[in-house]
């Protein structure tokens, strides 16, 4: 067992982990932050995306020990300080960008990483950036729309209002 320390959503945390403990397991089982989901075992679905030192990573494909010393942000850390939904979260609700909600944490975290890099993405940029996030429910329509809306762009002209 090794001791890891990191900040998660701004709070300092520590814990004892095995070498093989994944960051996703540490968050879910160690810290009870079950908003980060696990949807596959081949690093492809993106349900587990969190930010480590500001960068989107698949927490199922990183060891907790490797994240020691880092600043981690998860879906639980995305709301405004007063508890209201953050801009991206609010856009997802406004535009029905989620159905079952399982892919949603990863989608929101990936969208946040995109908008940090590219504040006014095109539709194609959004679709391309979300290549590693699989959603089975929405057909992606409203996810892409929500991300565009979160970037402050007018989405009222998008097909079928």
């Amino acid at each position: 067992m090794t001791k890891v320390t990191m900040t998660v959503n701004g709070k300092a945390v520590s814990g004892e982990v095995e070498g093989r403990t994944l960051l996703s397991s540490f968050l879910r089982e160690g810290l009870g932050l079950t908003g980060t989901h696990v949807g596959c075992d081949t690093s492809q679905c993106g349900a587990c995306v969190v930010h480590v030192d500001g960068k989107a990573v698949k927490s199922c494909t990183m060891f907790a020990a490797d994240a020691s010393g880092s600043a981690v942000r998860t879906i639980e850390g995305m709301a405004n300080a007063d508890g209201s939904l953050g801009t991206i979260q609010q856009a997802f609700q406004d535009h029905h960008g989620l159905q079952c909600g399982f892919c949603t944490p990863g989608m929101v975290m990936s969208a946040a990483a995109l908008l940090a890099e590219n504040p006014k993405p095109s539709e194609a940029d959004v679709r391309h950036y979300l290549e590693g996030n699989i959603c089975r429910c929405t057909g992606y329509h409203n996810i892409v729309k929500a991300v565009l809306a979160a970037s402050g762009q007018d989405v009222s002209k998008i097909a079928a209002e």
Partner: peptide, 14 residues
């Protein structure tokens, strides 16, 4: 959506 968007949904594995 509020619970799903804030990571507070409770799925079986949670």
């Amino acid at each position: 959506d509020i619970r799903f968007l804030t990571g507070k949904g409770v799925y079986t594995d949670d």
